[in-house]
């Protein structure tokens, strides 16, 4: 049973990865907005933003990485929605394959596609002068947190892909996720924000994740932020996973 699940998931992941490699424009579209924000903030606004770090790009990059993930997962929802509306999903459902393999294939593809986009954005940041003395362990921790965050957001994308009524609905859901970093410590220090906004900014998931990644890049002790960040990711993941399975059951027998 479980060997079948692994084999079927592998075959279906190969299939949807092919969808990604055959439309490399999705990677470009995913990375273009975060890169544009990065250019805009470093070269236009950056001069007048005080963050206390040497180079503003060093301060900015973690938030840009969050935006990259948020824009990447909208394609996951889109690919799932396309499967559902084209009938291929029903074909899979009527075949003797492990039931959840279809969803896991989309989740794995989402993680791979997001990692590629993240690598592209980091490369551009390096060209723009981003530097980090972080060792392999710190980098590994950054990758780990980003993968966990991607998986958590991917399950949200799965809910959307399974329950959306139109393509417009599919692409619209990621806008709030992309905007969330703007009301966090991603671009500016939260200390300067007015009271209620500041309270929101300091207690929403993006701030803890961004602060953790920034500390890891800056070779500072991660402190309690890392636990808050992990708790947020795990919490979102569990809730989204449960809701996604419920949405999946509604779509199937």
């Amino acid at each position: 049973m479980s060997t079948r699940f692994l084999a079927d998931t592998a075959v279906l992941t190969g299939r949807s990865l092919r969808h990604v490699t055959r439309s490399p424009d999705t990677i470009v579209t995913t990375t273009i907005m975060p890169i544009a924000f990065m250019l805009l903030f470093v070269y236009v606004f950056g001069g007048s933003i005080r963050t206390g770090s040497d180079a503003y790009v060093d301060y900015l990059l973690p938030g840009i990485l969050i935006i990259t993930v948020a824009s990447g997962i909208s394609y996951t929802a889109f690919r799932l929605f396309t499967d559902l509306s084209s009938g291929i999903f029903e074909r899979f459902q009527s075949m003797p394959i492990a039931r959840s393999a279809v969803l896991w294939a989309h989740v794995l593809t989402s993680v791979v596609a997001c990692l590629v986009s993240l690598a592209v954005v980091v490369l551009v940041a390096l060209l723009m002068g981003f530097r980090s003395g972080a060792g392999p362990l710190a980098w590994l921790a950054v990758v780990g947190i980003l993968v966990l965050f991607t998986v958590a957001l991917t399950w949200i994308a799965v809910i959307v892909g399974l329950s959306a009524k139109s393509v417009d609905g599919v692409s619209a859901f990621s806008y709030p996720l992309i905007l969330l970093p703007f009301v966090s410590s991603a671009f500016v220090l939260t200390a300067a924000m007015p009271g209620p906004v500041r309270a929101f900014a300091e207690n929403q998931p993006v701030t803890s994740i961004v602060d953790t990644i920034r500390r890891l890049f800056g070779q500072q002790p991660a402190g309690t932020d890392i636990w808050v960040a992990l708790a947020w990711c795990a919490g979102i993941l569990v809730v989204a996973y449960v809701l996604a399975l419920a949405a999946y059951r509604r779509r199937t027998v």
Partner: peptide
């Protein structure tokens, strides 16, 4: 046992 060809062709367009 069963294999279904649905009312609307269910092929993967990208493959």
């Amino acid at each position: 046992s069963i294999s279904l060809t649905g009312q609307f062709a269910a092929v993967d367009e990208i493959l």
